[in-house]
Amino acid sequence: MNKLDYLGQLESILKKQHMSKADIDDIIRDYAEFFEEGRRQGQSDGEICAKLGSPELVAEQILEENGHNVAITPAPQKNDFKMPKMPKFQWKPREKQPKNRKNGGLGSVLTLLIKLLVLLIVLPALAIVFGCAAIGLGCGFLGLICLFIAVILGFFAASMVTHFLTLPVTIFAICVCIALLSLIVCLGALLIMLTYWCGKLFLLILRELLEWIKPPVKTAAKPENHTTETEETIPNEEGELYE
């Protein structure tokens, strides 16, 4: 393989990898320079090609370095040293932590505020909705009991009236009354279950909301405690010194 073949192959491989033309031209220029230098040293193109390795291999290495570059953000690049992973090889990791903490602190305060705001709006709204629903269901339930009593009374009244009528009509009336009664009992049972579920759902949402609110309150409270503690201890120490 000669210089042109080699560079042509390399170029075509890199083109397939969506690399910009400027980058490809730059890379090809570098390898062309390498060929020229090698030739000047009296090496044949074949020898130079053998030293470089196949165009595929070279392209792979270029892409590896490039991909590596893309994947890592400018700041932590210093940390990257391609050696086996050793804790001592990661320099400057500590500078970053306080920054993160600061951001985290600000963020948590902000989210806490948002959460409190949401709580102030959502909790009363939920309470109103569920309260109304519970009251409505309760009323419905009471109404059903009344209906149930009314139907029983009606049943007796009907039997009293039908006592004076013919037998088949009496049986028909009793059947209709029983059907109505069972329907109402079923409806009542369904409504009771619905009330139960609604209550359960309400409690669940309430618990979720409380859990959602709790952790940031804790984390936000901790540093405050720390600062107050340190603030308290410093004057004490100073006081002791002055005494």
Partner: peptide
Amino acid sequence: NEGTVYPI
């Protein structure tokens, strides 16, 4: 591998 130097 002389090809690796340029990418680095």
